[in-house]
Design a protein around this nucleic acid. Structure first.
Length: 658
DNA sequence: CAGTGAGCGAGCTTCCGCTTGACTT
């Protein structure tokens, strides 16, 4: 009997169908060894020797692996073909009985050909790649387990800092500062309706060959008066064809962004539904940064497109996509349906929701192998001669061939505002009317889950398997809160951020992870020992740590004043503070006055049980939202789901679990 | 899930990345 070991149990099941009776396929379900949770687990004095121990939760998995390994004649370590996967194989090798030989194999797609080819090309474990994982792991542990206790001492117990989470909070905090600093500026847009046969609208772009800047009403009025009596003619007409290629297939990050935009889902929700689609064999693996596609899948997609939509929707050659990300590990394929002919599918756990996500994935994949859509673009420049010489412009696009838009339809303006009448150069135009529209420059938008993930990915920070957990942890720590889908930093978040950025600017620099990855690449190709990368980082870091520990004062967390006197001491003022369990109200004179009140966020309806109290939003110690009655403990009604939504639906008012 | 902040100082909190937990009320 041959034994083949992978990471994912679902993958194990699929492979065991390919490989037949001679193969026993087992899964590690992720890492089986890691640093211990309750202590640092790094011997700093002795070249940072890490203490990798068996993961307590994987005790049964490890016992099972050992059991089947004893019976196996050949053992193939087939964990994912990346840094973490290499480490997992190394750890499996480490638990095998002495004298048991094993071989490392890798494949990037779950097809029979890829796997059988891999089996015929085994190799040894790549110790350099394992070392790169060790370097990554040790660095993250040092940053996290050295700085978090510093925060407990200097800010508050239970807080945390990390290479990834702290940067996420930093992004949100700095965005808020940009918004605070932002001053809206007035400007005016000026539109003229002109007529040849049909009426169309042109917008003022230039005045006497300079970009038109209209900053206030006085200036706008001057121009309006002048434009009313000006003479209009067509200055130039440009027609060109615009070819729009489809989007690449989904990765974890782009799938989460699309599901947020189109379905309004959180990353966590998307991943949960994707997991069930994956487990039921409907899609390929859902934690990936790769854009590559199995050749067979592309072939089947091309056949499907040609049969279903016709030859003219099929490009002459298959489309292949390459990731632009330098940190991508490309251990898997892009996310795609496993069977392109299945145009819709739900799962037993997520019937409707599974269907919606599946269709999103299906469309994106089919579109990515279809022909470009083609637009006729028209740009009309109109000249107006008054006291000054004005240039005005209209541009429009008309879809000539839908191409991949066949499966991802473009929602046009309902009145078809994109189309323009036919005009010719030098043709005179009649003035119809002129309008000035007052506008103000807009502050930058706060991050939502999608834009935060997109930004982190661009910076190379975090991995497909961690995007959703990052979003969770910064909320559980009460560093940020989400209101109407947008992230706001809390006073605790701001305090922690400013403290860390002041004292450890280099660790939380946006470039830090990119630099780390560069060095880990050198470790992986054998040109740099991992211990050196850690030493170079740790020596100055430790010095700074000691200085800050000794010299810096405890950080004060801003409070929000409610403008009411404390009912107990009648001297202090009520303020909102953020504690371990979220917001609460207390007296500004704490610890002299210990008065506290609950911070109440009303949903806007009465308690369904006692009908007297209000339904309020509450938070568990682990950051999960739930709904309860304001009369607690007199009324013990509580629910995970908002009573505003009907049973069995997930309405907007119901919180997706953080 | 019914708490929170400071300090007293018992014991404890914490990282990132890989993978599914299980009834979720």
């Amino acid at each position: 009997m041959n034994l083949l070991i992978v990471e994912s149990p679902t993958k194990a099941r699929t492979l065991s169908r390919f490989l037949g009776k001679d193969f026993d396929v087992e899964a590690t379900t992720g890492h089986i060894k890691d640093l211990p949770k309750s202590k640092l687990g790094i011997d700093i004095e002795h070249d940072f020797k890490p203490d990798y121990v068996e993961v307590p939760k994987r005790k049964e998995t490890i016992e099972n692996l050992l059991k089947v390994a004893k019976k196996a004649s050949k053992i193939y370590l087939a964990t994912d073909p990346d840094r973490e996967g290499e480490a997992i194989s190394f750890h499996v090798e480490g638990i095998l009985p002495k004298g048991k030989n094993s071989q490392r194999i890798v494949f990037h797609e779950i097809t029979r050909e890829a796997v059988t080819d891999a089996i015929s090309h085994p190799r040894k474990i790549d110790k350099n790649l394992v070392d790169a994982q060790v370097g990554r792991r040790v660095l993250d542990r040092l940053v996290g387990y050295k700085l978090s206790p510093l925060l407990w001492k200097k800010v508050r117990r239970g807080l945390s800092a990390g290479r990834v989470q702290t940067v996420a909070v930093r992004l949100i905090t700095e965005k808020e500062r940009e918004i605070e600093k932002f001053k809206a500026e007035e400007y005016w847009e000026i539109y003229v309706d002109v007529k040849n046969g049909g009426v169309f609208t042109v917008q003022l772009t230039k005045i006497d060959d300079k970009v038109a800047e209209v900053k206030n009403k006085t200036r706008a009025d001057e121009i309006l008066v002048d434009l009313k009596k000006a003479n209009y003619k067509v200055f130039d007409v440009k027609n060109r064809q615009v070819v729009k290629n489809p989007y690449p297939p989904f990765t974890t990050s782009t799938m989460q962004q699309a599901a947020a935009r189109v379905l309004g889902w959180t990353s966590k929700k998307t991943m949960s539904v994707a997991q069930s689609l994956y487990e039921e064999g409907l899609i390929t693996y859902h934690r990936t940064d790769s854009l590559s596609l199995a050749l067979g899948a592309v072939d089947r997609a091309r056949k499907f497109i040609s049969k279903e939509y016709g030859e003219k929707y099929l490009p002459s050659a298959a489309r292949f996509y390459k990731t632009s990300s330098k940190v991508a590990q490309e251990a898997h394929e892009a996310i795609r349906p496993t069977d392109v002919t299945k145009t819709s599918a739900g799962t037993s756990r997520y019937e409707g929701e599974g269907r919606r996500l599946y269709e999103l994935i299906w469309r994106r994949f089919v579109a990515c192998q279809m022909d470009a859509s083609i637009f006729d673009e028209t740009v009309i420049d109109v000249e107006a001669r008054g006291s000054n010489n004005y240039l005005l412009r209209a541009s429009g696009q008309i879809m000539k061939f839908d191409g991949w838009r066949k499966v991802m339809p473009l929602k046009l303006d309902p009145d078809g505002a994109l189309s323009l009448p036919k005009v010719e150069k030098d043709e005179e135009l009649k003035f119809v009317k002129v309008d000035g529209v007052q506008k103000f420059t807009q502050p930058p938008a706060r991050f939502n889950e999608a834009s935060l993930i997109k930004t982190l990915e661009k910076l190379g920070i975090g991995r497909p398997s961690t995007y959703a957990p990052i979003i969770s942890v910064i909320q559980i720590r009460n560093y940020v809160e989400k209101k109407e889908g947008r992230f706001y930093p809390t006073p605790v978040g701001v305090a922690v951020n400013d403290f860390l950025i002041e004292h450890f600017p280099d660790v939380f620099d946006y470039e830090f992870t990119a630099k780390m990855e560069g060095e880990l690449d050198d470790v992986a190709n054998g040109s740099l020992p991992w211990v050196k990368t850690i030493k170079d980082f740790y020596n100055p870091f430790e010095k700074k740590l000691k200085v800050v520990e000794k010299n810096s004062k405890r950080v004060k967390i801003e409070v929000e004043k409610l403008g009411k006197k404390c009912p107990e001491c009648k001297i202090g003022e009520l303020v909102i503070r953020t504690g371990r369990f979220g917001k609460f109200v207390s007296c500004s004179r704490f610890p002299d006055c210990k008065h506290t009140e609950r911070y109440v966020e009303k949903v806007g309806m009465k308690c369904p049980e006692c009908k007297k109290g209000d339904v309020i939003v509450k938070k568990t110690g682990k950051g999960r939202h739930f709904f309860g009655c304001s009369r607690y403990p007199d009324c013990k009604w509580a629910s995970w789901r908002s009573p505003l939504t009907k049973a069995g639906t997930t309405g907007k008012k119901s919180f997706d679990n953080v």
